[in-house]
């Protein structure tokens, strides 16, 4: 994995005026389906420095996942730009892909395969040879608290919390210097949630990773992130340390600050984003 010195002197992420629109069905006009353009991201700009953890808060449909998928090279933008350690995510996909990994809300795996099998082939995609994976996979699974005796069992037999630990292990195995976490603790039981959050802290401290954390959990955002961004209908309306946000809106909690900034409660959930 490339970790050359020049990476330490440049911003980890530079997003400038990023726009993404999707078409959405808008009823019918006679026999024809009407489609309307909906902005998933509307001129989003921010920078992250190396080693920083930035939490992005927003309701469903606010554009969080679109932002993560654009940085993951899985979407093409409709304007603006995004760079990861100086590499354009649209034009230099291969260079960007070497530097990033992600954990999303669903721990996506081939469910009939075991944790070791899933991690093994995934590591191979990042150029890791068999000898190396034989040593590193048991070690990294052990570090996320995955029981050794269950390493050969199909993942479909495991709890969501356990699967999410494997997802973290998969992301870490490739030693990313930018880790994209898209609601990694959503739907987990309190204990699994705590374990995953503890591990995220460890990643920060030990691996020198830059972390973009999209979350619904405001306490999690406040505890884990250096700065908090609020994404509302595709626009980044706030970006500051949590304490500053609370102070700005004269709010006791981050949830109150969110409410004041967006004019809506955090639980209000509009329709899902994307095409």
């Amino acid at each position: 994995m490339t970790r050359s010195n020049h990476h330490s002197s440049m911003p980890a992420v530079v997003v400038d005026g990023l726009r993404k629109e999707f078409f959405r069905n808008d009823g019918r006009a006679g026999l024809r389906r009407r489609r309307k353009r909906v902005a998933a991201l509307d001129g989003v700009s921010f920078e992250m420095h190396r080693g920083e953890t930035l939490a992005i808060l927003g309701q469903n449909g606010s554009g969080k996942s679109t932002l993560v998928r654009l940085l993951s090279t899985l979407l093409l933008d409709d304007g603006g730009s995004a760079h990861v350690f100086g590499h354009d995510v649209a034009a230099e996909t291969r260079a960007v892909r070497r530097l990033i990994n992600r954990v999303s809300v669903e721990a996506s795996f081939f469910k009939k395969m075991s944790a070791v099998e899933n991690l093994s082939y995934a590591a191979r995609f990042y150029g890791m040879p068999i000898r190396e994976t034989r040593e590193r996979i048991p070690e990294i699974l052990g570090r996320v608290g995955f029981p050794r005796k269950r390493m050969g069992e199909p993942l479909e037999d495991m709890s969501r919390g356990m699967q999410q630990k494997v997802a973290l292990a998969r992301a870490l195995l490739t030693a990313p210097i930018l880790l994209l976490l898209d609601e990694p603790t959503t739907g987990l039981d309190p204990r699994s949630k705590l374990e995953v959050q503890t591990f995220i802290r460890e990643i920060r401290q030990i691996h020198d990773a830059t972390i973009l954390l999209c979350t619904h959990d405001l306490v999690e955002a406040e505890e884990l992130a250096d700065r908090v961004g609020i994404l509302d209908r595709g626009r980044l309306i706030e970006l500051a340390p949590a304490a500053e946000l609370r102070a700005k809106y004269d709010a006791v909690t981050l949830e109150d600050a969110f409410f004041a900034a967006t004019g809506k409660a955090f639980e209000d959930e509009p329709e899902e984003e994307d095409d």
Binding site: S72, L74, R97, R102, S108, F109, F110, A122, F125, G127
Partner: peptide
């Protein structure tokens, strides 16, 4: 559900 992970691999 693995498609995004596979297609974002280098």
């Amino acid at each position: 559900g693995t498609i995004e992970y596979t297609f974002m691999a280098p």
